[in-house]
Amino acid sequence: MFRLRDSANYLAAFLIILAVNFFLPRLMPGDPLTAIYGEEALVHMTPDAQEELIQRFALDRSLGEQFLEYCSALLRGDLGYSYYFNDTVSAVVFRAVPWTLLLVGTAILISALAGSIAGMESGWRRGKRTDRALLAGIMFLEGFPDFFIGMIMLIVFGVVLKVLPLAGAMTPYAGYTGLALVQDILRHLILPASSLALVNLGGTFLLARNTMVSILGESYIFTARAKGLRERVVSYRHAGRNSLFPVITHIGIQFGRMVTGALFIETVFSYPGLGLLIQKGLQARDYPLLQGVFLVVTVTVLVTNLFVEVLYKKIDPRLRPCISTTGRKLETTV
């Protein structure tokens, strides 16, 4: 029962996205076919092909019928045709999806790990100089646009130090197989993934720090100390355990932002994911492609959020009323 209630939000969000995708080109002044396909595409099209497109989008019929036609095409997995790539949008998009997922997944892993460790460290020394420096440093980093950090990393590690690859997701035609290939892909992944992780450290960092701060005042620390365990080890263990939930919830919330950030990072590193497709689509005014990427990314974000939420509630029903991004409330329920 709760699932239905909760997924209603997502369903509504999905409808909004569909509406944006459907109405935006149709509300533009001028011929909707031009708006949907862009002028360049139409120049290369024969009148027959244009007629076929009008039929296909039901452009000669009412808006309601057009919407039905649009939805049924989506149900068939038909996202339209990209004239720039001369291929169906779905094929183009799904070739790029794995790269973006790889990038975002790695960045999430890095930011969760590094953020928690730095946060716990900071919390342990709260009020001290290290704490303040870390806090200020991470807030400063968070203020940079993703692409800026990416560019600086690229200049420093790629151009000046010459230690990491300049562009792409792997060395083309290097003939690597097996482990060498994995290594090559990882080498290309380091810079973009860590750039993306760096600007997104803040949330996890603050969560872990808060948890650590609150734990230091708890009675079981004293108990543990009495048992002869080293205070620091115990605190880390507890802090790590207690901040796990909020960190994971936070990842769910952050996923959307990460994916958006990845789109920019990919442009900087010519990483062959969805971001590069967006850039190409913008340059070539390939609207079907832009719409396809938009739809796929937003739906992925929705599904991930839903997934995290459902998982979260299923595992611990007691936590239902207090999903929060601050570790504090969770800690009080323990």
Binding site: A12, I16, V20, A35
Partner: peptide, 22 residues
């Protein structure tokens, strides 16, 4: 509030990009 919740789960940057493209 339904509307607000729905809007909250959509990454706003993407909407801006697609709208700005048009």
């Amino acid at each position: 509030m339904r509307l607000v919740d729905a809007f909250l789960v959509i990454p706003p940057m993407l909407v801006v990009i697609i709208a700005a493209a048009y």
